[in-house]
Design a protein around this nucleic acid. Structure first.
Lengths: 280, 280
DNA sequence: AAGTGGTCTAGACCACCGA
DNA sequence: CGGTGGTCTAGACCACTTG
């Protein structure tokens, strides 16, 4: 049994003395999780079936089902219709780093954000940029270069290319007010994001713009975002949020088009990427 | 109505011509998501209540409930008992970077991983390390230093401190076989992880060990992991996986103890952190 | 008081797996 | 074939928010 022996339908505790009790489905989850934690259930082992949980814990099948379904969505279990439910292999530990809008981030820590637009124009896609977009060289793209500052001190050089069809009004924006990132988020629903982070030495121009010492390294973050391919895409595809096991992510190639390609240069001495994360 | 007009209880299509149909709860999710996508429902707007969905779509309340509950778990909606269901504010775009076990990562791209143990001993916690662990200076900790190589070329310097109670057998491990990360994952369930990434210039020793040029920067990843505080901690706390909205993460301080503190030094020219990600 | 979400149940049909 | 998960329903009680 679980905490107490109530088996009756709706024989809920009702107005018993205050002590809030966990809902049944949660207690079933805990029941399974504890057996995983203490080693009674190892990865690959078969978990009690819904029927068995019904019999063992005195809950309804729907409740047992919800518990196991949520644990599956959380990546702890694997289910095979007709076969059974099994403990998922241990996660490799991963996924991190919050990457937020720079303006929000600065404000969050009490700083004053400002931005200076160095460049804003339409340009034909060059070699690497064209490749990144998967479009032929010469394709016209919007190109912007901004320097973001915190309390007047430059903290980010943003070099961005944007597909005109993803954000037709891009050139008309006042990026001192809303960052390019904010504008794009508002007008183009992001379908997929790719990040690369590396440590590099900035070229002279970047170093100067960011007011850095000679020899000081930069954190360089390259980001590509995809938008949906103008289709109905009535859901159902991959990436169904909590519904899909984490493993599913690496698979499918995005079918959308690249909406933007951006290089973010942070001064190594003044900026760190960070993130805190609780594994499932 | 949804795809077809079936309203009858269990008046399922049964053995109709093959065309697999989406389950009802999924169609309800799509119904709501489409109204969000096409702008009919803006962030903050009230979503049809379960009752209204029952009336409008001819599904049972449990089905409508499941649809809205899952969308909430996926971060698309916010629910307030007694008040209603609302479209969640647009996500600030973020979270990325897979950080995996270096040995797995190298193998995944077809390389040969090897590791050399430079140091492995018990030492008293010094200033910064003691602080990081939240324990008094002088507390005995395990300390290991390894150099990982891909095809013989050094690619990672790992400087790690481990709490003895989290992994009592740490000193007895053969880290040429299983990395410290793998050992810790196996013996201590991680409760929380914190990462910091920055670009720095390595000191001479690190530069030499990683076979780097003078002036070449490093990607430095600092990671702290927490384990549960030896308590029953019967779940229920914060961080219930898919159950919790993403916002919840930044809040609570972990109540567990720091299990390990590690600095990972990557040669800037030879390593990039990357990740691909589909927003909910 | 009316409406909302939160939970739970008992029973049902289905497709699929494995013996 | 029996067992397993996958889904759906109708109805119920509860605590909470709102007017």
């Amino acid at each position: 049994m679980l905490d107490d022996g109530r088996t009756q339908p709706d024989g809920r505790t009702g107005t018993d003395g205050g002590g809030a009790e966990a809902p049944l489905y949660r207690r079933v989850k805990t029941y399974v999780l504890e057996r995983i934690r203490d080693g009674a259930l190892q990865p690959g082992d078969r978990v009690p079936s819904e029927h068995e949980l019904v019999a063992a814990l005195g809950v309804s099948r729907m409740t047992a089902n919800r518990a196991l379904r949520e644990l599956t969505a959380e990546g702890r279990l694997t289910r095979v219709a007709g076969a059974g439910t099994f403990v998922a292999p241990a996660k490799p530990l991963g996924t991190v780093l919050e990457i937020r809008n720079i303006a929000d981030e600065i404000q969050a820590r009490g700083g004053a954000h400002s931005a200076r637009v160095l460049h804003l124009a339409t340009e034909p896609a060059a070699g690497e940029v064209a490749e990144g977009f998967g479009r032929p060289a010469g394709t016209p793209l919007f190109h912007s270069i901004l320097v973001h500052a915190e309390n007047g001190r430059p903290i980010l050089l943003e070099d961005r290319w944007v597909a005109p069809d993803a954000a037709p009004d891009y050139l008309a924006q006042d990026f001192a007010q809303a960052t390019p990132s904010e504008h794009l988020l508002a007008v183009a629903p992001v379908r997929e994001v790719e990040h690369l982070v590396e440590a590099v030495l900035p070229d002279a121009r970047t170093r100067t713009l960011l007011d850095m010492e000679v020899g000081e390294p930069c954190l360089l973050l390259r980001r590509r975002t995809w938008i949906a391919a103008a289709e109905a895409e009535t859901e159902g595809g991959p990436g169904e949020g909590a519904e899909t096991a984490p493993e599913g992510r690496a698979e499918g190639r995005a079918e959308g088009r690249v909406a933007s390609l951006v290089e973010l240069w942070f001064p190594g001495g003044r900026y760190r990427l960070g993130g805190r994360f609780r594994p499932g």
